[in-house]
C-alpha cells in the first residue's frame, strides 16, 4: 500500500514536471509542432467531453461533431453578423449545443432509445445539421464562413502566434480534467456508472435513469460546443463538410476508446499517440489519400483485440503487476 502511494506520488510529480516543461517549451518550439500540440489537446478535450457521456454514462454518441459544428457556427455567426466577441460566443455556443443535446437526449431517452439506436439517431442529427447549414446563404452555405484577421488581440480571441492558442486550449483541457475528476467523485458520477453497468439494475434501485442520462448529455454537449468555437477561431474557416463531419465524430470516439474509455487520461493518451501519427502519415504519405484512416482502422482493430480497455488501462495494469513483482 505504501509502495503504491509512493509510486503514485512519483507519477504525479513527473506529470507536473512534464506539464511545466511543455508549457515553457511551446514558446521555443517551431510552429508546426505547436500546431500538432494544439490538435492533441483539442482532441483530448473533446474526447474527454465525449467520454462523460459515451465512456462514463455508457451512451455511445456517434454524432459529437454535431456539437463542434454547432459551437463553431454559433460563435462565428455571432461575430460576423452581430460583432459579438468570441469570448461571449464561446459561452453562447456551449448553451446552444446544450439545448440541441438536450433535445436529442429528450427524443431518445424519453422513448428508451439506447445502444445502437441511440448511436444511429446521433448520426442522423449530424447529417441533418450539415444539410441545414448547406441550405442557407446566411450560414455561408457550401462556401462556408471565413473569420477575417483583426489583429493580435486577446479580446478577439485572435493571435498572430500559435502558442497563444496552445495556452487557451491547454487551459481548457486542464479545466475539463478537473471537472471530469469532480464528476467521477460525485453522486452523479456514481449513477452514470450504474447506468452504464446495468441500466435495469439502476432503475430497480430507484435511480432516475432518464434524468442522469440527460445530465450526462447536456454536460457533454455544452463542453464540446465551447470547443467548437475555439476550433473555429483557430482555423478561421468553417464549412459544413469539415464541421458536421461523420469522420470527425469517429475520431473523437477513437481517441477515447483507444486511450481508455471511462478513464481520466485515456482520451489524452489516445490523442497524444494518434494525432501526431495521423499528421505524420499525412505529410509523409500524403499522395496516398486516406492512408491515415486506413492505419487508424488497423490500429483500432489491434487495440480492441489486445487491449479492449484501451492503452491507458493496459499500461496501468502492467505497471501494477510490475510493482507487485509478478
Amino acid at each position: 500500500m505504501i509502495e503504491q502511494t509512493k509510486q503514485n506520488n512519483l507519477i504525479k510529480t513527473l506529470l507536473y514536471i512534464l506539464t511545466i516543461i511543455l508549457v515553457l517549451a511551446v514558446l521555443k518550439l517551431p510552429s508546426n509542432i505547436v500546431h500538432v500540440l494544439i490538435l492533441v489537446f483539442f482532441y483530448a478535450y473533446v474526447s474527454t467531453a465525449w467520454d462523460i457521456l459515451g465512456g462514463y454514462a455508457g451512451q455511445m454518441s456517434f454524432g459529437h461533431s454535431l456539437f463542434i459544428g454547432v459551437g463553431a457556427y454559433t460563435s462565428t455567426l455571432l461575430l460576423l453578423r452581430l460583432g459579438i466577441t468570441p469570448w461571449i460566443g464561446l459561452f453562447v455556443s456551449g448553451l446552444i449545443a446544450l439545448v440541441i443535446g438536450a433535445f436529442m437526449g429528450f427524443l431518445c431517452f424519453r422513448s428508451n432509445i439506447t445502444g445502437f439506436y441511440f448511436a444511429l439517431v446521433t448520426i442522423v442529427f449530424v447529417e441533418i445539421s450539415r444539410y441545414l447549414s448547406l441550405g442557407f446563404e446566411w450560414t455561408g452555405a457550401a462556401k462556408g464562413l471565413y473569420i477575417p484577421y483583426k489583429g493580435n488581440n486577446i479580446s478577439n480571441l485572435q493571435f498572430d502566434s500559435k502558442y497563444m492558442y496552445f495556452y487557451v486550449i491547454f487551459a481548457m483541457y486542464i479545466g475539463i480534467l478537473i471537472l471530469y475528476k469532480a464528476i467521477m467523485k460525485s453522486k452523479s458520477g456514481f449513477y452514470f456508472l450504474a447506468i452504464r453497468e446495468n441500466e435495469e439494475a439502476a432503475e430497480s434501485i430507484g435511480i432516475n435513469t432518464y434524468k442522469y442520462k440527460m445530465l450526462a448529455t447536456i454536460i457533454s454537449s455544452f463542453l464540446v460546443g465551447v470547443a467548437g468555437s475555439f476550433w473555429a477561431q483557430y482555423i478561421t474557416f468553417i464549412d459544413p463538410y469539415t464541421m458536421f463531419d461523420f469522420m470527425l465524430s469517429v475520431q473523437i470516439i477513437f481517441f477515447a476508446v483507444a486511450g481508455g474509455r471511462g478513464t481520466l487520461f485515456g482520451p489524452l493518451v489516445g490523442a497524444a499517440l494518434f494525432v501526431p501519427l495521423s499528421e505524420g502519415l499525412r505529410t509523409m504519405m500524403g499522395r496516398i489519400a486516406g492512408i491515415n484512416i486506413l492505419v487508424y482502422g488497423i490500429i483500432l482493430i489491434l487495440i480492441l483485440r489486445f487491449m479492449p480497455d484501451g492503452i491507458f488501462v493496459w499500461v496501468k495494469d502492467r505497471l501494477k503487476n510490475l510493482s507487485h513483482g509478478r
Binding site: F190, L193, A194, E197, N198, E200, A201, E203, S204, I205, G206, I207, N208, T209
Partner: peptide, 30 residues
C-alpha cells in the same frame, strides 16, 4: 419507476442484475 422505489416498493429484478464490475460492497451501497 424511481419514484415508486422511493415510496418503498422495491423489486429484486429477475436474473439479479448486479453491477458486475463493482465490488460486493459497492453494489450494496448503490
Amino acid at each position: 419507476p424511481h419514484d415508486i422505489v422511493n415510496k418503498g416498493l422495491i423489486q429484486i429484478p429477475e436474473g439479479r442484475q448486479l453491477f458486475g464490475d463493482m465490488t460486493v460492497e459497492e453494489n450494496l451501497l448503490m
